[in-house]
């Protein structure tokens, strides 16, 4: 229950960190909040030769909105530094106002003690399919910036998750920023999950983002599920049933039914796959009702 020895590298700037990542490559692990990495190091399931600690890089800790203060010029994109603590996001006025889905999901992430250390970039890059933040990234159609020595690229959330605990991030890259586009007008969002105890990993959870026109007809929707497969799962077939339709109980039932077939949960010690599908179906009904109601009144 004690970590194996490692070389500790604590860069104080992003440039230094990129150099260290370039030098150490696959021998190094990046230490963000450490709330997932340190447990696996304690169990010696991970034994990195070097640990590059990103906690002393203030330039990765920020929340900004493009054009804030000059509404006409604003594109309204939110930019979040990857080392921003989850607790900071939970309490940030820009997040509450412009990314209500992220705001709504924050209290579901573990406990305050964990959120005080845990970071948004760490959770996104860890790629746990049962985690909330990857689901929110996909639901909000956000993207992440990956930087390496001498270059940077943007990857959409939907392309970022490639397999279980696996992302498109290369070994010499650091996830530096998260960008969330503004919600279109008349858009409603909702997130919910079911866990055995508050703060535990959820058995099932879903985020919904619904946009309607003036008549209340759905024009766009995203439904994204956690603990429903190897990556966050976007139920695109279920979502397609909603487009062009007005809200109704029958429609939501059909969508929820399709969604539970579209996801791919597996049996584990907490619940069977069948039960997780059932939960996903029930939760889909709830978030759709909530998101539609909010979209119409938005």
């Amino acid at each position: 229950m004690k970590p194996a020895p490692f070389e500790y590298i604590a860069p104080t700037s992003l440039a230094e960190a990129l150099t260290a990542v370039h030098k150490h490559g696959s021998d190094a692990s990046l230490l963000a909040g450490g709330q997932s990495l340190v447990p696996v190091m304690n169990f010696r399931l991970a034994q990195p030769a070097a640990l590059i600690d990103l906690n002393n890089i203030p330039e990765l800790d920020y929340v900004r909105r493009e054009g804030n203060g000059q509404p006409e010029a604003a594109s309204g994109h939110l930019h979040i530094g990857s080392m921003t603590r989850q607790r900071t996001l939970e309490r940030h006025p820009l997040i509450a106002q412009y990314a209500p889905l992220l705001h709504e999901a924050m209290p579901y992430i573990a406990h305050p003690q964990i959120r005080n250390r845990g970071t948004i970039g760490g959770s996104l890059a860890h790629a746990d399919p049962a985690a909330e933040l990857p689901v929110i990234l996909l639901a909000l159609d956000g993207r992440v910036q990956l930087q390496k020595s001498g270059g940077a690229r943007w990857v959409h959330g939907r392309d970022f998750y490639t397999d279980l605990f696996t992302t498109a991030r290369a070994e010499d890259e650091i996830l530096t920023e998260i960008e969330l586009p503004p919600l279109p007008p008349r858009t409603g969002v909702a997130f919910t999950e079911i866990a055995r105890r508050h703060g535990d990993y959820a058995l099932s959870g879903v985020a919904a983002v619904v946009t309607v026109d003036e008549r209340g007809i759905c024009t766009a929707v995203r439904l994204v599920y956690l603990n429903a497969g190897d990556t966050p799962i976007s139920a695109t077939q279920a979502a397609a049933l909603l487009v062009g339709q007005a809200a109704s109980e029958e429609l939501f039932t059909a969508v929820a039914h399709t969604a539970q077939q579209e996801i791919a949960p597996t049996d584990d010690i907490h619940a069977t796959a069948k039960y997780k599908r059932h939960l996903a179906q029930v939760l889909t009904m709830r978030v759709l009702q909530q998101a539609f109601t909010r979209a119409v009144s938005a």
């Binding site: 450490g34 709330q35 340190v38 906690n55 003690q113 964990i114 250390r117």
Partner: peptide, 27 residues
Amino acid sequence: CEHGVCGACTVLFDGQPVRSCLMFAVQ
């Protein structure tokens, strides 16, 4: 538990509660 579940090791880090088993002392 030494993996961040039980909370017995909670201390204040700059005034905020954290799991001391999920941090390295050098940090």
